[in-house]
């Protein structure tokens, strides 16, 4: 069983960190995991994507061509990557940045990810962790215990409580979306 993820948006949103955390959570759950990325020469502001594959079997080709789950945190990313999805894909959009998702026929779940980060933790900086909670809540791709441990292992000291809060807020967003679906 192979599950593929692409997190896309703008450099500086923490999407590569989110990808690393998801892959680490996969390893904690005993799955195989790879994470790869692509980015332009800029440090911030350019388009950014991180890809993760979780599987029980060995993973060779590490790039994602048809994501099972696509997270989009900018309109540019939606325009660029939605067409890679199929009808079986799940597209999670951040309602603050993404208006249109065209061309995939995929199921779309629109969530106030960045707004929730700001409300729950006081900073939009935590949007990547909110997004991780939402992705895990909607797909059940990793256990909550593993994801929490992976988040706390990776984030800077002193920010653990805020990140835990962000993760919980993401799971809550997912739960609400499931109930209203």
């Amino acid at each position: 069983m192979k599950k593929t993820f692409r997190f896309s948006g703008t450099g500086g949103q923490g999407l590569i960190t989110a990808g690393i955390i998801l892959a680490e959570a996969g390893l904690l759950d005993g799955q195989n995991a790879v994470q790869s990325q692509s980015y332009g020469p800029e440090a911030r502001g350019g388009s950014s994507k991180a890809e993760v594959i979780l599987a029980d079997e060995p993973i060779h080709f590490a790039r994602v061509t048809r994501p099972d789950t696509l997270l989009v945190m900018s309109q540019e990313a939606a325009d660029k990557f939605a067409r890679d999805c199929g009808p079986e894909s799940l597209v999670i959009t951040d309602s603050l940045f993404v208006q249109r998702v065209e061309g995939s026929g995929a199921r779309r779940v629109d969530l106030p990810i960045t707004r929730t980060a700001n409300e729950a933790c006081g900073k939009t900086l935590f949007a990547n962790i909110v997004a991780l909670g939402a992705v895990a809540g909607l797909t059940q791709c990793v256990s909550k215990e593993a994801l929490k441990k992976a988040v706390l292992d990776r984030v800077p000291k002193g920010t653990e409580a805020a990140n835990e809060k962000a993760l919980e807020a993401g799971y809550t967003l997912a739960e609400k979306a499931r109930q209203s679906a």
Partner: peptide
């Protein structure tokens, strides 16, 4: 491909 790849 391999230099920037993260895996187990």
């Amino acid at each position: 491909v391999v230099g920037h790849l993260r895996e187990r």
